[in-house]
Design a protein around this nucleic acid. Structure first.
Ligand SMILES: [Mn+2]
Ligand SMILES: [Mn+2]
Ligand SMILES: [Mn+2]
Ligand SMILES: [Mn+2]
Lengths: 217, 217
DNA sequence: AACTTATTTTAGATAAGACTAAAAATAGAA
DNA sequence: TTCTATTTTTAGTCTTATCTAAAATAAGTT
């Protein structure tokens, strides 16, 4: 099988490739992995030797079929464990990421099959991200970033972009969670800030917040 | 914290020290770790630098207070995860060791605290081994190896020495499990083999089998 | 006590994964 | 197009954890 480091790099490249659509820059990988560009280059070259990524120097990196399969399997494990931590061990949604980051590397097909069953085959993790099935298929959900919505539009929160503790606690404090209905009451052109309606309350939110909330309309 | 390898060596030394009472030979460690004596020496010296073991060359190794604490914490995690796998995910008791071997290295105090609670604070793992509490205290149980019992003595199975799949499946096949009442009907001096009564059946067992069953009289 | 064997340690190599510093390639600006 | 700034790669070093081969020590035997 693959090492922890390899799995983490593949997962990282997968996420960057999704976001930017196209070859991923070495610097972007290094930044997300909290490492130096030279270390990233080193790993990328080893992954290329194993045909998990295709790579032409100075031109960026993309995952191969094999690389995608590994990345998606790790993401599946990560998200299933997050569900376990929240649903069964009563962790808060902002506390689970670090632990899942470790648990995602446990090697056992059977374990994941049984965990999935134990959790009753969940479709989404606590942050609203879809859980790939055992064949690696990911349910594509139609969702919009809140910051791109306009006045008087509404929808329900189905996911968050940021998963840092600070951000998730910010949402908790305002009773905003996955499934919460949100309506745009006003939007400021100058700075992109908004007034939103959540249940019976109204909040002012900055553009930065709005950019990190995914809404299903 | 400590690396996976360090944790595995410490756990290994702990178990060997329990068995033989006294300093542990380098070869014994190497054998149990499935590695070479030179590799073991190397690690022992590094553990000695970190004051996790006390070591005098050619004289063997013993754990320090600090080393014991690390080993026991790992053993606690290993056994709690084994309970989880059997009780919650319905694994058989012979299938859980390998997976627990990985899970025991997950670093999170909070996770173990919550797992322990989720499992309702179990005292023993599926193989009858006691689970250390969070302070590292291990319940000492009075138990006897079946091979040392004599004719017409009886007791209940409280643990197994071997945990290999083959051995555990051998027991399953004969309906022998933790908690099963066993009576010695006969014992052969020549080879130490026995006839035992288990529920309504009688079995012939070799000395090797008898040496791997712990009985509470 | 001297020799032989088994155990343990050292010396030297290797691979993964990280780093710093320097060189090379690319992109942007003048 | 040529210079400059940024990005990326290479070269060389480090640590952990492993190996093989050789040297050192301990234990056992005549
Ligand atoms: Mn990870
Ligand atoms: Mn998540
Ligand atoms: Mn282990
Ligand atoms: Mn066990």
């Amino acid at each position: 099988m693959y090492t922890r480091a390899e799995e983490n790099y593949l997962k990282c490249i997968f996420h960057l490739e999704q976001e930017h659509k196209g070859a991923v820059a070495t610097n972007a990988i290094a930044q997300m992995m909290h490492t130096k560009a030279s270390s990233a280059t080193d790993m990328i070259q080893r992954l290329a030797d194993k045909e998990l990524v295709s790579y032409r120097r100075y031109k960026g990196t993309t995952l191969t079929k094999a690389g995608i399969a590994v990345a998606v399997a790790v993401i599946r494990k990560h998200r299933l464990w997050e569900v376990f931590l929240v649903e069964k061990l009563n962790f808060q949604w902002d506390e689970v990421h670090e632990i899942a980051e470790q648990l995602e590397h446990i090697q056992s097909e059977e374990l994941i099959t049984r965990l999935d069953k134990f959790l009753d085959h969940p479709d989404y993790d606590p942050h609203g991200d879809p859980i790939p099935d055992k064949h690696g298929n990911i349910k594509k959900t139609e969702k919009k970033v809140l910051s791109e919505m306009s006045k008087s539009q509404h929808g329900i929160l189905v996911g968050v972009r940021e998963t840092s503790g600070e951000f998730l606690q910010y949402l908790d404090k305002r009773n905003i969670a996955i499934g919460t209905k949100i309506k745009v009451l006003g939007k400021e052109f100058f700075d992109g800030s908004m007034i939103i309606q959540v249940k019976r309350e109204q909040f002012f939110i900055s553009k930065k917040i709005a950019e990190n909330l995914y809404i299903q309309v």
